[in-house]
Structures are given as structure tokens and as C-alpha cells.
């Protein structure tokens, strides 16, 4: 058994437990996107950063991949952690502005404006779907391809995979997938439009004086893009 101190509270956990699990056991909230119970930890989204070590030599690590150590000092919500987490969220939001999950996390972290250019990537490369397909569905139909800025997830050769049983597990776990939030195309929407955006955007009515927490508004941006085409 290993004893570590999280935010000043001692907790004893079994060997092999991650810092994230220990913190959640104590009830400290740590936001995650690429972590899911039953899937191997991956550490892609970096949202679960925590500060470990003692002043002045502390460092930020991803808690979902960091195993608990004897006597480890962890802070899950220090100023440095919150600043880093906010920046990560802003960047995630810039790459996938239409994801409801990321939007909700962003608004929960007090992000009110989009500082960065919106890329509309549809994917944050968190690898949840890849791990779901391999570890839970035992299919290995999709995986990472290419590298660097060309990295993407999909089937080999971009053709329908023989290994795919169309279980939908990848879409179910995806935090960014457009299939879950297709407000810009209401007739294809599955989740019924997202709560944050539905008042001003789904109806496509001018709501100039309507309060919208996103500035610039994501859906309005997409609207403009479609108009341009």
C-alpha cells in the first residue's frame, strides 16, 4: 500500500493506482477527456494535469498516467494547474469548437471568448475510439495514421474495414465527434442540438441582443462558413 498526500489530505491506495484514481477516490474533481474506466490510460488530452512535488521544484504531470508514489505531494487545483488547464481547454476548443463536451468544460472553467482561430477539426486525437475498438470491442478496426499535423484516426486505406462490426462504440465514446452534436444541420442532429448553442443558433433567427457566452459564437461562425460556400 502507498500513502500519498493530495491537496493536504493523506490517502492510502494500492500499488499501481494512478494519481487520478486516488484524487477521485477522495472526491477531488479532475476533468478528463481521454480517460475512461475500462480502457488503458493514454494521457493524450492533458486536461487531467496536476502539480506534483514540493515548492520550489514542482512539475505538471498528467494524473491519469502517473502512478501513485509513496509520500507524493499532489495539488489538483493550484493556480499553475488551473492556468495550464484553461490554456489546454482553449486550444481544444479552437480545434473542435463544435463539441458539446468541450464547450461545457470550457464554460465550466470560465472561458467566455475564443482567443484562437477555430479550426473545426472534428477530432482531438484523444484515442478513446481507438482504445474502445481494440480493448472493449476486440475489433482493431480503426487506428492512428500518419504523424504530426497529418495525424488522423480511421481505417487502413480509408476503406470499410473487415474488422469493423459497426458497433458504434467509437461514436459513443467520442468527446468531439460531430455525430453527437450536429446543430448546424438540424435535420441530421442526433442529440437534438446542444444546450449551450440551441437558443441563438439552431433556429437560425437573428438574436442580436441575445446573450451568448461564446464570443465569437461557434455556430454563427459555421453559419458564416456555409454561407460563403
Amino acid at each position: 500500500m502507498i500513502t500519498l498526500r493530495i491537496n493536504g489530505l493523506d490517502v492510502t491506495v494500492e500499488k499501481g493506482t494512478t494519481v487520478l484514481e486516488a484524487a477521485r477516490f477522495l472526491g477531488f474533481p479532475i476533468p478528463t477527456l481521454c480517460h475512461m474506466e475500462g480502457l488503458s490510460p493514454y494521457g493524450a488530452c492533458r486536461l487531467c494535469v496536476v502539480e506534483i512535488g514540493q515548492e520550489p521544484r514542482t512539475r505538471l504531470v498528467s494524473s491519469c498516467t502517473y502512478p501513485a508514489e509513496e509520500g507524493l505531494k499532489v495539488r489538483t487545483a493550484s493556480a499553475r494547474v488551473l492556468k495550464a488547464r484553461k490554456m489546454i481547454l482553449e486550444l481544444l476548443l479552437a480545434s473542435c469548437p463544435q463539441s458539446k463536451i468541450i464547450q461545457d468544460l470550457a464554460s465550466a472553467h470560465g472561458i467566455r471568448t475564443q482567443r484562437f482561430k477555430q479550426e473545426h477539426e472534428d477530432c482531438i486525437l484523444c484515442g478513446l475510439c481507438v482504445r474502445m475498438c481494440e480493448e472493449q470491442m476486440m475489433a482493431k478496426a480503426i487506428g492512428f495514421r500518419n504523424r504530426g499535423e497529418k495525424r488522423s484516426i480511421g481505417t487502413p486505406f480509408d476503406v470499410k474495414s473487415d474488422a469493423c462490426r459497426q458497433c458504434g462504440g467509437c461514436i459513443y465514446v467520442c468527446p468531439a465527434c460531430q455525430l453527437r452534436c450536429t446543430y448546424a444541420e438540424p435535420e441530421k442532429a442526433i442529440c437534438g442540438g446542444c444546450a449551450n448553442l440551441s437558443p441563438p443558433c439552431v433556429e437560425k433567427e437573428p438574436f442580436d441582443d441575445m446573450m451568448c457566452y461564446m464570443d465569437p459564437c461557434v455556430a454563427c461562425e459555421i453559419d458564416k462558413k456555409i454561407d460563403k460556400r
Binding site: K140, A141, G143
Partner: peptide, 8 residues
């Protein structure tokens, strides 16, 4: 090996 790994 799975084709996904090889293609990756």
C-alpha cells in the same frame, strides 16, 4: 498483426 497496426 492487425492491419491497423501495420498501416499505422
Amino acid at each position: 498483426r492487425s492491419l491497423v497496426d501495420i498501416y499505422g
